[in-house]
């Protein structure tokens, strides 16, 4: 079936872990936007949720770091962080090993992707799932793009990976929803945590909504690091979604910098 949903959302651990310290109005508006995203995914009839995340050394480390990886298991446990620290209780999310295998096989036609039959979710996936499938009743397939340990895959490779995921999703009979998670500009877990470059974010989101490939790929890591922090490297997940949207145009449903969450909180989707 053709891909039924493509969107992006933030995944910062503070969204759940430091919710009591945020401006209530901004936090509640974000939570409402997450609720709407969940309703949109449900309305799409999705039978599996593929989450493209930028995990943070929960499963992959510099001893053997894949640029791209896809989970291939029947279940995934999380969160790897302390449940109290993250504000999300321990859970087991259902997977779909067979579907994963078929998706991976198709992706491999054009992209050398690693697969993993074990995967512990960190906040990069746990926070989105907390809002998007709170009962854990939708099979999840985790996908990772290395955005943490340079050298990182060049942006055109993230685009090619998104194209491959779209081709794979379209090739299976199941209805697949695709969600990318990450930050735009942010400096998470550093002395600059809470800093957000809003103009940079808004310019990036303009490019994302226009699905302007040339402008989305017109970044280099040195300037991204200078302007948007190491968290900015996670634009790879957003760019993969753009590629998967195959020319569709996007809408930003929510964007508000929330410093205690350490990111400009974002919910956006493409009209497929």
């Amino acid at each position: 079936m053709p891909l039924v949903y493509a969107g992006v959302c933030s995944h910062a651990p503070g969204i759940t872990g430091r919710k009591d310290r945020a401006d209530p109005e901004a936090r509640d508006a974000l939570y409402c936007a997450f609720d709407q995203m969940r309703e949109d995914i449900v309305a799409s009839g999705a039978e599996a949720l593929v989450v493209i995340a930028a995990e943070h050394f929960a499963n992959f480390f510099m001893n053997n770091m894949p640029s791209f990886a896809v989970g291939m298991a029947d279940f995934y446990d999380g969160p790897i962080e302390d449940a109290g620290w993250l504000g999300i209780e321990t859970f087991r999310a259902p997977g779909n090993r067979d579907l994963s295998r078929r998706l991976i096989t198709e992706v491999m036609q054009t992209v050398d992707v690693a697969y993993a039959e074990e995967w512990k979710f960190d906040h990069g996936i746990a926070v989105p799932l907390h809002f998007l499938t709170p009962e854990f009743d939708l099979p999840v397939i985790p996908v990772n793009v290395n955005c943490q340990g340079p050298p990182l895959a060049p942006l055109p490779r993230a685009w090619a990976f998104g194209e491959a995921l779209r081709r794979a999703a379209d090739s299976v009979p199941e209805k697949v929803a695709l969600v990318g998670t990450g930050g735009i500009s942010h400096w998470p877990a550093t002395p600059d945590s809470g800093k957000i470059n809003e103009p940079w974010d808004r310019d990036f989101l303009d490019r994302w909504c226009a699905n302007d490939k040339d402008r989305l790929l017109d970044y280099d890591d040195l300037t991204v690091y200078a302007d948007a922090g190491q968290g900015g490297f996670e634009i790879r997940t957003f760019i993969a979604i753009s590629a998967a949207a195959n020319g569709a145009k996007g809408t930003v449903h929510f964007y508000t910098p929330i410093p205690i969450f350490a990111v400009g909180c974002t919910i956006a989707s493409y009209k497929l």
């Binding site: 943070h56 050394f57 962080e81 943490q148 340990g149 998470p188 877990a189 550093t190 002395p191 945590s193």
Partner: peptide, 23 residues
């Protein structure tokens, strides 16, 4: 990397703002 270090701080029960200040 802070994505590794923040969990080590939490392991030691170091509060978030204290963690940022220590860096």
């Amino acid at each position: 990397n802070g994505q590794i270090l923040m969990h080590f701080a939490a392991f030691h029960q170091i509060e978030w703002q204290d963690y940022l200040q220590r860096m």
